[in-house]
């Protein structure tokens, strides 16, 4: 498929620390993103979402983090075979990232405008002055007056800082934007504004989006395709319609059960009981088995592969869901 902008195959990332042991944060994850497509990556805190994002950019924290298997192909070229210098050209210019916490993502001692122009100046062959002018434009674009170019992060509120971070990420018109919980740290009203703005800018620039979130509402609004991740593994992947209307995996169902629903009259939420397994000590078999109400003998022994349950790309990692479909 020539339109595949990013293709992650079999990616595994571990964190090794002397005290805790080996954390298997990401396990054999495969994902494709097409040009112009919005892919949502959904999971609980600690499921390995951010680690995947950092893995794509080869920014896995050193020295504890290491990529143990897999490839990340960008337009068919393996990013892990590139030199550091080539990688630097890709970061920011081709693939850029919006980080989770706008409070800490900006350098406190640099004016926000300079932080944006740093990005532009690094990737475009223009003078610093031109870069500054472009950065001022970017600020205006995200709704911050260019007059505030010289101001410092501490002079901005959280929502404004997130706008700065977004302006920075979009400054070089990247082909792929990775947005890691771009709205989690924000108030609900600001959330909507920011999402709206991202959508607008995305359309304008033709960027593909990998949206990392634990908020299914945001996914419904923004994404074409969704991948549900649990304990470092993808458990269900499909179009937004598949996931929302034809939910297969018990975990995904659980996620929806944890949401209050205005339309139904059921009296209580159905939370998923228990906790996600410790990534340093993952259970054998299906990772979700200890919390699953349908768990069988087989689930605790052996894990199902990601298996298609419909011809148009709906995949599930669950024995029961696949059997219901009559497959295997």
């Amino acid at each position: 498929m020539s339109d595949t902008i990013l293709s992650i195959k079999d990616l595994s990332i571990q964190y090794v620390s002397r005290e805790i042991g080996t954390c298997r944060a990401v396990n054999n994850v495969s994902l494709d993103i097409q040009k112009g497509e919005n892919l949502g990556l959904v999971g609980e805190t600690g499921a390995g979402k951010t680690t995947i994002a950092l893995g794509i950019l080869r920014l896995t924290p050193k020295p504890q983090g290491r990529v143990t298997s897999g490839t990340v192909e960008f337009w068919g070229e393996d990013l892990y075979k590139k030199s550091e210098a080539e990688m630097r050209k890709i970061r920011g210019e081709k693939i850029s990232m919006i980080f989770q916490d706008p409070m800490t993502a900006l350098n406190p001692i640099d004016p926000v405008g300079d932080q944006i122009s740093e990005m532009i100046w690094l990737h475009e062959k223009i003078t610093k002055k031109e870069a500054a002018a472009k950065a001022a434009n970017m600020l205006e674009m995200v709704g911050i007056p260019a007059a505030r170019y010289k101001e410092y992060p501490h002079q901005f509120s959280g929502g404004m800082k997130q706008r700065v971070v977004i302006a920075m990420a979009l400054a070089c018109s990247p082909e792929l934007l990775i947005a890691d919980e771009p709205t989690t740290a924000l108030d609900v009203t600001i959330q909507a504004q920011v999402l709206d703005m991202m959508n607008g800018l995305k359309k304008e620039l033709g960027t593909s989006l990998l949206l990392i979130t634990h908020d299914l509402g945001v996914v419904a609004e923004m994404c074409d395709k969704v991948a549900i991740i649990y304990a470092g593994e993808i458990v269900e992947v499909g179009t937004t319609r598949h996931i929302f209307k034809d939910t297969r995996h018990p975990y995904t169902k659980g996620l929806f059960g944890s949401l209050p629903d205005m339309n139904s009259h059921s009296k209580r939420l159905k939370p998923i009981h228990g906790l996600m397994p410790d990534p340093a000590n993952l259970p054998q078999g299906c990772k979700f088995a200890p919390r699953c109400e349908f768990c069988t003998e087989r689930c605790t022994k052996q894990e199902q592969e990601l298996t298609a349950v419909s011809p148009d790309g709906h995949l599930v990692r669950c024995w029961r869901a696949v059997e219901e479909e009559g497959g295997v």
Binding site: R88, R91, G92, S96, F99, T104, A105, L106, E118, V165
Partner: peptide, 14 residues
């Protein structure tokens, strides 16, 4: 270990 250092790396800074 600060986040803004990661941001700088993600920008492609040397």
């Amino acid at each position: 270990r600060q986040d803004y250092v990661r941001t700088a790396r993600a920008k492609g800074q040397t």
